[in-house]
């Protein structure tokens, strides 16, 4: 059970959150201008890495807000937490 530091509520147990998938996915728009390869990439291709993974969480059973996290997938430790819309920390 992860202990997740919500930037608005503080550390709360994992059970209060839903996972929002990979962070920093750019939704290509306007759709008419997007080629098949780019659209397919957006729909189906996701990073799968060992190390610092940028993902989204939503505090669904709390404040309801989305935020981003950098989590080390080998230890499940959170390296960084940052608000939705903010860039990935270096």
């Amino acid at each position: 059970m992860l202990l997740i530091p919500c930037p608005y509520c503080g550390e709360r147990p994992e059970i209060e959150f839903t996972h929002g998938g990979e962070a920093h996915l750019i939704r290509p728009a306007p759709p008419a201008a997007v080629d098949e390869e780019t659209w397919s990439q957006f729909l189906y291709m996701r990073t799968n890495l060992k190390g610092a993974y940028a993902e989204r969480w939503r505090h669904a059973r709390g404040c309801g807000k989305f935020f981003n996290a950098l989590r080390d997938t080998t230890t499940d430790h959170f390296i960084a937490i940052y608000k939705a819309g903010e860039p990935k920390p270096a």
């Binding site: 929002g20 669904a60 309801g64 989305f66 939705a84 819309g85």
Partner: peptide, 10 residues
Amino acid sequence: AMMEDYRQTE
């Protein structure tokens, strides 16, 4: 949930 996702992050 989907509505909130687009509203907050998109």
